[in-house]
Amino acid sequence: MDKTIALEELQLHLDFFKKMYQVVRIVDPTTKKVLNYNDKSIEYTDGICYSYWENDSMCENCVSMRAFFSKDTVYKLEYLSDKVYMITAIPIRSTDGLVILELLKDVTHTMLIDTEDNEKAHNIKSYISNMNDMVVKDPLTGLYNRRFIDERLPVDIIQSLLNEKPLSIIMTDIDQFKAINDELGHIEGDSKIKQYGEILKSSIRLENDWVARYGGDEFLICLNNTDNDTAYSIAERIRKKIERDMSLNKHGNINITGSFGICTMYKEEMTAEDMMKTADNNLFIAKEKGKNIVIR
């Protein structure tokens, strides 16, 4: 259900919001830009939304992206400089599309937090971090989950277009995973999924790229500023490492390998669904051609 509000409605209440909240701002969740609202119009600024939290990169659990996709109000806790903030993200309809109103309120004292107690403050910060991780992390592998893919991949696509840099994704899964489960059991099967994910994560640039568990034994790797040839080389390196390092259970005789499908976009408009469909089709071809190969 669409629960957005119109920009004109926002104008009526903006001054009131500023009396209630420490920070009132409008952001474009897809570009991460902070926007100015003047005389019924919105203008882009050079401000980046996540810099407020003293971050050098996008927030993992982006509250504005969640509000953007759900078209509903979303809440989140954040911690900064010994203070706890409640963020309310409200989707706003404008002539330029959907933007997000972010309302930041200091709730430190209402939560009975003693900021002079360093141990308690550290525990609160860890609790908030763990709580935010639960939204976007897969509990088995510790990697990002499908929700993170849905929220983050569209942002990376837009950044790719704006910066005119290539973006590649790799879809991969474990070959004959059902047979592995049948042969070794589900506990060992889960162990193999976890090991597979660890190899994927150790094979990318964590400051630029990310990997998520798409579902079951299937994973998605996102490689920013990476052309098709480089993505192919990375996938080949991972494929060989999996073939070499994923040891067999002493009770099993199944060779554990992985197949890979790649999609690269550069200066062309592809949606997240387009990219995933292309990569998944290439993964299917890899399976048809005998598995344990990379198709691009």
Score class of each variant (00 low, 15 high):
residue 140 L to E: 09
residue 169 I to W: 00
residue 178 K to C: 09
residue 174 I to E: 05
residue 160 S to H: 00
residue 136 V to M: 06
residue 144 Y to S: 03
residue 173 D to I: 10
residue 183 E to C: 11
residue 172 T to D: 02
residue 153 L to N: 01
residue 182 D to G: 12
residue 174 I to H: 10
residue 167 L to V: 01
residue 188 E to M: 14
residue 146 R to D: 12
residue 151 E to C: 03
residue 152 R to A: 13
residue 135 V to A: 08
residue 171 M to Q: 06
residue 157 I to F: 01
residue 184 L to H: 13
residue 191 S to V: 04
residue 166 P to A: 03
residue 162 L to Q: 14
residue 162 L to D: 11
residue 187 I to P: 03
residue 169 I to N: 00
residue 141 T to I: 08
residue 149 I to K: 04
residue 137 K to P: 03
residue 172 T to G: 00
residue 154 P to N: 06
residue 152 R to M: 14
residue 181 N to D: 09
residue 171 M to F: 07
residue 136 V to A: 05
residue 181 N to E: 11
residue 182 D to Q: 14
residue 145 N to D: 08
residue 140 L to M: 15
residue 189 G to K: 12
residue 158 I to N: 12
residue 148 F to N: 07
residue 136 V to R: 03
residue 184 L to T: 14
residue 182 D to W: 12
residue 145 N to V: 06
residue 184 L to G: 13
residue 141 T to C: 10
residue 181 N to P: 05
residue 133 D to R: 15
residue 167 L to K: 01
residue 154 P to I: 03
residue 151 E to S: 13
residue 144 Y to P: 01
residue 183 E to M: 13
residue 177 F to Y: 12
residue 150 D to E: 13
residue 138 D to G: 06
residue 145 N to Q: 08
residue 181 N to T: 11
residue 161 L to M: 09
residue 158 I to V: 12
residue 153 L to I: 05
residue 181 N to A: 06
residue 157 I to K: 04
residue 164 E to Y: 11
residue 150 D to G: 07
residue 145 N to G: 08
residue 162 L to Y: 10
residue 139 P to A: 12
residue 155 V to I: 12
residue 150 D to Y: 07
residue 138 D to V: 08
residue 161 L to V: 04
residue 177 F to C: 10
residue 153 L to R: 02
residue 159 Q to H: 11
residue 183 E to V: 05
residue 142 G to M: 10
residue 134 M to Q: 11
residue 186 H to A: 02
residue 139 P to F: 05
residue 149 I to T: 04
residue 148 F to W: 12
residue 180 I to N: 02
residue 142 G to E: 08
residue 175 D to A: 05
residue 189 G to A: 09
residue 152 R to N: 14
residue 190 D to F: 04
residue 171 M to N: 06
residue 145 N to K: 11
residue 165 K to Y: 10
residue 146 R to S: 10
residue 134 M to N: 10
residue 172 T to H: 04
residue 184 L to D: 11
residue 139 P to V: 13
residue 149 I to M: 14
residue 132 N to Y: 11
residue 184 L to V: 15
residue 159 Q to K: 09
residue 170 I to S: 00
residue 140 L to S: 05
residue 185 G to E: 12
residue 178 K to I: 07
residue 149 I to L: 15
residue 151 E to V: 06
residue 147 R to M: 13
residue 132 N to F: 09
residue 160 S to F: 01
residue 151 E to I: 08
residue 153 L to C: 01
residue 186 H to L: 02
residue 135 V to N: 07
residue 166 P to G: 02
residue 180 I to H: 07
residue 155 V to E: 07
residue 168 S to I: 03
residue 155 V to W: 03
residue 162 L to E: 14
residue 170 I to T: 02
residue 169 I to A: 00
residue 132 N to P: 07
